[in-house]
Amino acid sequence: MDEFIKQTEQKDKGEGFFELETPRMLEVNLDGLVWAKAGSMVAYHGKIKFDREGILEHGLGTAFKKALTGEGASLMKANGRGKLYLADEGKKIIILNLQNDSIYVNGNDLLAFEPGIKWKIKLMRRIAGMMAGGLFNVHCEGTGMIAITTHYEPLTLRVSPGQPVITDPNATVAWSGNLQPEFQTDISLKTFFGRGSGESIQMRFEGDGFVVVQPYEEVKRVEKG
């Protein structure tokens, strides 16, 4: 037992506001406010209050988009002082430090972000009728930390002028904020896999930036109620 406790106990690493306690557990050294994915809290100590995001807290447009997509990217606010531990289904966690940058993150893969980060929801309307629940992303910009999650090890692909990158929407985690993906249907794949195949729908990235993919096809979940 002593050896197990020694190997697994919490250790302060002095990394700042966000700290990877393990590759799949995020420690938030909270002294104020943090936004986090609803349901991601696994433990905390200190005095912390949790509030689910208000339906109109970020404007009617955001509330409408969330209702329209029906997808599970609800957020909660954790406010107070202490140590907060977040996780999401054992997925690997990556901390990104934005310096006046912007990035799009799949709505299901955004774990937490500092309150100074500006964010808005973007619905991929052209694909909404092709996939169950559509495809819904969060645009984050500004200066501060965000934490995203991936199933297994992520791969970042560079997008260069004249060298587009095509991805499976269900395996696409994030991309640089200056890129605007287009959607295309591969008729040959559609015929090969069948009419309901997700592989027949692809995201095409052109320009100068990057896209992050994971070795897993994440089926978008639809919230009930």
Rank of each mutant, 00 (worst) to 15 (best):
I103N: 06
I103A: 03
I103P: 05
V105H: 09
V105A: 05
V105T: 09
N106W: 06
N106D: 15
G107R: 00
N108Y: 04
L111C: 07
F113R: 05
F113Q: 06
P115V: 09
P115H: 12
P115T: 10
G116W: 09
I117N: 10
I117P: 02
K118F: 11
W119H: 10
W119Y: 13
W119L: 03
W119Q: 01
W119P: 00
K120Q: 13
I121P: 00
L123P: 02
M124I: 02
R125N: 02
R126E: 15
I127S: 02
I127M: 04
A128G: 02
G129V: 05
M131Q: 07
M131V: 13
M131F: 06
A132N: 10
A132W: 00
G133C: 02
G133W: 01
G134Q: 12
N137F: 03
N137G: 01
V138I: 15
V138P: 00
V138Y: 01
H139G: 04
H139N: 11
H139T: 01
C140W: 10
C140N: 14
G142Q: 13
T143M: 10
T143D: 05
G144H: 12
G144R: 13
G144Y: 14
A147L: 10
T149Y: 13
T150M: 07
H151K: 12
Y152F: 12
E153T: 08
L155Q: 13
T156Q: 12
T156K: 12
L157T: 14
R158L: 14
V159P: 06
V159Q: 07
P161N: 15
P161M: 12
G162R: 09
G162L: 12
Q163Y: 11
P164A: 13
P164G: 09
V165A: 03
V165E: 07
I166W: 07
I166N: 08
T167K: 07
D168F: 02
D168C: 08
P169D: 01
P169E: 08
A171H: 03
V173L: 08
V173S: 06
W175D: 07
G177E: 02
G177K: 03
N178L: 01
P181T: 09
E182C: 04
E182D: 14
E182Q: 13
E182F: 09
F183Y: 15
F183P: 00
T185V: 15
S188L: 02
S188V: 01
S188C: 00
L189H: 04
K190M: 11
K190I: 00
K190R: 15
K190S: 13
T191K: 13
F192K: 13
F192I: 00
F193I: 00
F193Q: 05
G194K: 08
G194D: 07
R195A: 15
S197E: 02
S197G: 05
S197H: 00
E199Q: 10
S200H: 03
S200L: 04
S200M: 08
Q202N: 10
M203R: 02
M203N: 04
M203P: 03
R204G: 02
E206T: 12
E206G: 11
E206R: 08
F210Y: 08
V211M: 04
V212S: 06
V212D: 05
Q214H: 15
P215H: 10
P215N: 09
Y216R: 10
Y216N: 09
E218V: 00
E218D: 12
V219C: 02
V219Y: 03
K220M: 05
K220P: 01
R221W: 01
R221P: 11
R221N: 13
E223I: 08
G225E: 03
